[in-house]
């Protein structure tokens, strides 16, 4: 995974990550306080940042930081590295987002960003990004934890002795 959760001490190492990514033709996006870093192999950092914002606008969970959204963008970037047409779609799509927002989607208000997204709902760019968020963000065990989903259970013996019937708030049937 190119997404790295970084502790304070490892933050500086992201410089080498950035160098590696730059050598591969992409770039790097580093999260606030160096909490995570996204190494891009195809897309440029500005496109990456815009896509992170867009994916959060599509499925905004205030309880999530940007790291799981960056993973979605990583998935898009990895696909784009193998698919020129997709790289073009994503680059042109983010350019269109900027153009519709006086040159910067990132600097626009939420209301304006959403209006832009509503206006492009049927575009292949929007559909591709939205579909990738659905199958990536919600397939992330880190996100599952936040949403209260426990994932694989067979290796824990199922829920037979782990609360399959532990609901305690239903009133007595009367």
């Amino acid at each position: 995974m190119a997404i790295k959760k970084l502790g304070r001490r490892t933050f500086l190492k992201s410089a080498s990550l950035a160098a590696a990514a730059a050598a591969a033709g992409g770039g790097v996006v580093i999260g606030p306080n160096g909490a995570w870093a996204l190494a891009l192999s195809k897309l440029d950092p500005a496109t990456g940042k815009t896509l992170i914002r867009m994916t959060r606008d599509l499925y905004p969970h205030d309880q999530l930081d940007d790291a799981p959204y960056a993973k979605v963008v990583e998935a898009l970037d990895q696909s784009a590295a193998k698919d020129e047409a997709l790289a073009k779609l994503l680059t042109e799509g983010t350019a269109a987002l900027d153009k519709a927002n006086s040159g910067s989607y990132l600097k626009a208000t939420e209301a304006r960003r959403l209006a832009t997204l509503v206006g492009m709902q049927t575009d292949p760019f929007f559909q591709k990004v939205r579909g990738t968020v659905v199958t990536t963000l919600y397939n992330d065990p880190e996100v599952w934890k936040k949403l209260g989903y426990e994932g694989s259970s067979a290796e824990h013996g199922g829920y037979l002795h782990r609360g399959f019937d532990d609901i305690d708030w239903l009133p007595k049937q009367g």
Partner: peptide, 28 residues
């Protein structure tokens, strides 16, 4: 449905704050 399929099937094509809020309530 688990979280992955709930996201795909609860309201296919839906996005935005209302949908995300529903997913936030998954355990409930």
């Amino acid at each position: 449905l688990g979280v992955p399929f709930m996201a795909a099937f609860l309201e296919p094509g839906a996005w935005g704050r209302q949908f995300a809020a529903a997913m936030d309530q998954y355990s409930h």
